[in-house]
Simulated assay, not measured.
Amino acid sequence: MGQEFSDFIVYVDESGDHSLTSIDANYPIFVLAFCIFYKNHYRTRIVPATQKLKFDYFGHDSVILHERDIRKGLGAFNILTSQEIKETFMGRLSEIIEQNNFILATCVIEKQKLDNKQKEIHPYHFSLTHCLETLYEFVKEKEQEDKLTFVVVESRGKKEDKELEIEFRRICAGENKFKKILPFNIKIISKQENSIGLQIADLVARPIGNHILFPTTGNRAFELLKPKLYCEGGREKVGEGFDQKGLKHFP
Rank of each mutant, 00 (worst) to 15 (best):
M1W: 06
F5Y: 15
D7F: 01
I9L: 13
V10N: 00
V10H: 01
Y11I: 03
D17T: 14
H18I: 04
S22C: 05
I23N: 00
I23T: 03
D24P: 02
D24Q: 08
N26Q: 13
N26S: 14
Y27G: 05
I29C: 04
I29W: 04
F30V: 02
L32T: 01
I36G: 01
F37Q: 01
N40S: 15
H41Q: 10
Y42R: 09
T44G: 04
R45T: 12
A49V: 02
T50I: 13
Q51L: 14
K52T: 14
K54R: 09
F55S: 12
Y57M: 08
D61W: 04
I64S: 02
I64T: 06
L65W: 02
K72E: 12
G75Y: 06
F77N: 00
S82Y: 00
E87D: 12
T88H: 11
T88I: 13
L93H: 07
S94Q: 12
S94T: 13
I96Y: 07
E98R: 15
N101W: 07
I103D: 03
A105E: 10
A105L: 11
V108Y: 10
K111Q: 02
Q112P: 03
K113C: 08
N116P: 03
N116Y: 08
K117M: 10
K117N: 09
K119N: 09
H122V: 09
Y124E: 11
F126C: 01
F126I: 03
S127I: 06
T129G: 12
T129K: 15
T129A: 10
L135E: 06
E137I: 04
E141Q: 14
E141G: 07
Q144S: 08
Q144P: 03
D146E: 15
K147R: 15
F150D: 09
V151G: 03
V152T: 11
V153L: 15
R156F: 05
L164M: 10
E167C: 07
I171Q: 01
C172D: 00
K179H: 13
K180T: 06
K180E: 15
K187W: 08
K187G: 07
S190T: 09
S190F: 05
S190G: 08
K191V: 08
K191Q: 14
N194A: 06
N194Y: 01
S195Q: 11
I196Q: 02
G197Q: 02
G197L: 09
Q199A: 02
A201R: 00
A205Y: 11
A205W: 09
A205G: 02
P207T: 01
I208P: 03
G209E: 10
H211T: 07
I212T: 12
P215M: 05
T216E: 14
T216N: 13
T217L: 11
N219Y: 07
R220C: 06
L224S: 10
P227I: 10
G233T: 03
G234L: 14
G239S: 04
Q244D: 13
K245W: 11
G246I: 00
G246D: 09
K248E: 07
K248H: 12
H249F: 13
H249V: 14
